[in-house]
Design a protein around this nucleic acid. Structure first.
Lengths: 136, 136
DNA sequence: CTGTGTGCAAACACTTTGCAGGTGT
DNA sequence: ACACCTGCAAAGTGTTTGCACACAG
């Protein structure tokens, strides 16, 4: 059984050719991908609608997490080992390089933020833009 | 001359009924607004396309700034006094309440983040989700 | 075998572009 | 008067829904 098969199983997902394909694309890319990015990387005859559903499923099951974009779109990135169907543990910074355009997860914790009285934080999303190590 | 007239002038914008209307909506709402929010608040016969262009213009001139959304859309909020056509000075936290759904600018600074060697930060966007003071 | 995933068609929503005419300065 | 803004039409793009069939478990 392949690596992606295992991964899918771990997340309570049936292993189908389409899902394996999408998962491969995530595994091959270290940066976050938009729906469009993935679509372009898939065999040209792969159904667009199925991809929408696949991504939604991956998201629901916790295989991938959302990455915000400054243009107001969404990207997706594989979750690390701390995540399962049960829960997520994301507290890292997302970095978008304005030169190469790639957005990636950095291994940097988001510092605790002191909010005004009465506000309670549940989830935090931090997107930093600038130039990445490859484009410097 | 009205308040919104002044504001528009300050940002090198012609004062037109449509722009005043949009600006009023921002002034009346303390939270960030999406294109759809604004459209719903405008007279029903107001042209959708003009609104796209108006928001883009406001953004370009620095009258409003982008507010990211976790669903992958964009919202807009009035800039504070530190902003002008010349430049922005945004370094505050955006908070989205998962109960009332409102996103607002908090008067809380985003702390400095130490990035890995070679990364350079230019702009930072922080969205915190949770429950706000009104919904607690 | 059964429930879930897929592909197709169509509807729907969102956003952009071009142009003719109107309006602020 | 001139440059810019607006409204309309149309095209382009992105996303959702329903249904019949295929397939994994």
């Amino acid at each position: 059984m392949s690596h992606s098969d295992h991964l899918l199983k771990n997340f309570d997902l049936r292993s189908t050719p389409g899902r394996q394909e999408v998962l491969q694309i995530f595994l091959k890319n270290s940066h976050a991908l938009s729906h469009g990015d993935i679509e372009r990387s898939m065999p040209k005859d792969f159904d667009r609608v199925t991809l929408y559903r696949t991504l939604k499923t991956f998201l629901d099951k916790g295989l991938v997490h959302k990455v915000l974009d400054d243009e107001g779109g969404l990207k997706y990135a594989l979750c690390n080992n701390n995540c399962s169907t049960q829960g997520h543990h994301h507290n890292h910074v997302h970095f978008k390089c304005t030169i190469c355009g790639q957005t990636s997860c950095l291994d940097v914790e988001i510092p605790g933020i002191k909010l005004p009285k009465g506000y309670k934080s549940v989830e935090t999303n931090l997107l930093i833009q600038g130039t990445c190590v490859n484009c410097a």
